[in-house]
Simulated scan of single mutants.
Amino acid sequence: MNKGRQANSNAKHVAGITLVAAFIAFMMQPARADDPAKLLKAMSDYTAAQKSISATFDSDVEVVTPELEKIQFTSSGKIQLSRPDKLRISRTGGYTDVDFIYDGKTASIYGNNAKAYVQADLVGTVDQLVDLIQAKSGVAMPGTDLLLTNAYDELMSNVVLAQHIGQGMIDGVECEHLAFRGVDTDWQIWIESGARPLPRKYVITSKAVTGAPQYTLRIRDWKTDAVADADAFVFKPPAGVTKVDLNSGAMAEFDEIPPGTPSGARK
């Protein structure tokens, strides 16, 4: 009996050592290092192939004061896209409450705090619209560059170094963590692993600005098969609001930080 117990004890001891050794070997495995450009291209192709998209987001914009103190301004919102020519972005924060609506022919931006809106007759695709609005007004449109049909080309245009950092968890979803370096701007993106390579987190660092402020975007509640209500892309000005010119100084009221506050964390 003693020999039997001893043999059983030895077997358990060996099994324990084997289990520990296997665990250590597993933990010491090098992290999977996939091609970051390939992973980004898969995301771009997947989102571009979706005819309709909706998601919610939280965004943080950092600014650096003259005293080198970092201050963050936070907003939340929703994006709805119906390709090729319909888009709506709603964003609310401490200094902004804004709707951007495009129905394929007219672009409208309404600021609830400003009690004003701007409109422009623009016929084209969402891709063309995003480029034009950001170039003319400077209004932030969180995450729209991730949803363009040519997102890969836009994102990679100034990249000098790309890395696959490893895996991460965003809102409980396993993601591939990628990092990209540019001359003036670095950025990171977390892309959902598996069959739905959707962007879940996006961080832009402005290296050329003192203090290297960041823009952070978290995206969740992704739906790629829901048919949006046609009314979602129709703008009806509320009673008592003022229409202003697209190039007027009033456009500052539509931004997500207080007017006159400098910010370098934009891409």
Rank of each mutant, 00 (worst) to 15 (best):
M1P: 09
N2C: 02
G4W: 06
Q6T: 10
A7R: 12
N8Q: 10
K12H: 10
V20L: 15
A22F: 12
F23T: 15
F26G: 03
A31L: 09
D34V: 12
A37V: 02
L40M: 14
K41S: 14
K51A: 10
D60I: 06
V61D: 12
V63P: 06
V64I: 14
T65N: 02
P66D: 12
L68N: 13
E69V: 03
T74A: 11
K78M: 07
L81G: 03
S82P: 00
R83N: 13
R88S: 09
I89G: 05
G93A: 11
D97F: 03
D99W: 04
I109R: 06
N112L: 01
N112D: 12
K115W: 07
K115Q: 14
K115H: 13
T125Q: 06
T125C: 07
I133R: 06
S137C: 01
P142Q: 14
P142G: 09
D145T: 07
N150T: 10
Y152P: 06
Y152W: 02
L155E: 07
M156L: 04
V159D: 13
A162V: 08
G172W: 03
V183D: 15
Q188N: 12
I191P: 03
P197D: 12
V203L: 11
K207C: 02
G211P: 07
Q214T: 13
Q214L: 09
Y215T: 09
T216I: 11
R218G: 07
T224F: 05
D229C: 01
A230E: 15
A232M: 04
A232D: 14
F233I: 04
F235S: 06
K243G: 05
S248W: 08
S248N: 08
E253R: 15
I257E: 07
S263N: 15
